[in-house]
């Protein structure tokens, strides 16, 4: 097929659309003026202000802890779920399990948030646990929707897994658990890493669900950002966004290079 001008033009416009707002956000984080959109000179003062804001720092620390714990719980449960769905072809309730784990992926956040809050309130009045709402309830909520993402990532890795490796290990007398830890786990490790990172970022990013299930005194970073942004533009949010975008860009960039480097080796093997 002839290469026309249409596709490249559309693609370039599309990427400009995706990146122009992010780039302008980064540029204006170094702006002197409080007016985020009028350039008045280079300055890093908003970064200084960001790191002197105890509310922001406290919320960031809380969010990081919640994200780390949630991503870890989600990693374990999501991996188990992926193994069950890919390896155990037939078992009772397979359809239900597969539906339950993929539904949170598309469930509107407001429904997830409301339903978990009502569950926690109900559990507290019947069981007395969890007492009040805060970090624990946010972790329980985040683990649940993050495990859905982990499960999808690990499932696709397991689907193109060379079963003969496991069979060889079992033929040589390894127990199922040993096969799992010595063969399966190292091979699916890249999927586990990206699943954990995905869970971590999603938890760090969630505003709606956390707003429902958090209690007084446990405001996560997105909740603080949201209340600031609602009042208008604040340059320190630009500074924070620049830091987050920088870390993510470095990470994704490194991962892509790593993948490109490791590909030729795989092709030869």
């Amino acid at each position: 097929m002839r290469r026309g001008w249409f596709l490249p033009t559309m693609a370039i416009l599309g990427f400009v659309f995706l990146y122009a707002p992010i780039i302008s956000l980064v540029v204006f984080s170094f702006n002197e003026s409080k007016l985020v959109t009028v350039w008045s000179g280079f300055s890093t003062k908003w970064y200084g202000e960001l790191f002197a804001d105890p509310q922001m720092l406290g919320a960031a620390w809380l969010s990081l802890r919640i994200a780390a714990v949630s991503a870890t719980i989600a990693l374990v449960l999501g991996t188990l779920c992926a193994i069950a769905l890919v390896r155990f072809r037939r078992f009772r309730g397979r359809t239900v399990l597969s539906g339950m784990v993929s539904a949170p992926l598309v469930m509107p956040d407001v429904i997830t948030g409301l339903s978990l809050l009502l569950l926690f309130v109900g559990m507290e009045s019947i069981l007395g646990w969890p007492a009040g709402r805060g970090m624990l309830t946010i972790i329980l909520a985040h683990s649940t929707f993050c495990m859905a993402y982990v499960c999808v990532v690990v499932q696709s890795r397991l689907a193109d897994f060379d079963m003969s490796l496991e069979e060889a290990a079992m033929d040589l007398g390894a127990t199922p658990a040993r096969v799992f830890f010595d063969i399966t786990l190292p091979i699916i490790a890249p999927a586990l890493v990206s699943g954990w990172l995905l869970g971590f970022t999603l938890s760090l990013d969630d505003l709606v669900i956390a707003s429902f299930v958090s209690g007084p005194g446990s405001s996560t970073l997105p909740m603080v950002i949201f209340s600031k942004v609602k009042l208008g533009v604040s340059p320190d949010v630009n500074a924070l966004a620049t830091i987050i975008i920088g870390i993510v860009a470095l990470g994704v960039f490194a991962a892509t290079i790593f993948q490109l480097r490791s590909r030729p080796k795989k092709a030869r093997a």
């Binding site: 302008s24 204006f28 949010v237 924070l240 860009a249």
Partner: peptide
């Protein structure tokens, strides 16, 4: 991978 909330915020500046 970058924050959803911050991308929406980026649009307000735009």
């Amino acid at each position: 991978w970058t924050s959803f909330l911050l991308r929406v915020y980026a649009l307000t500046g735009f």
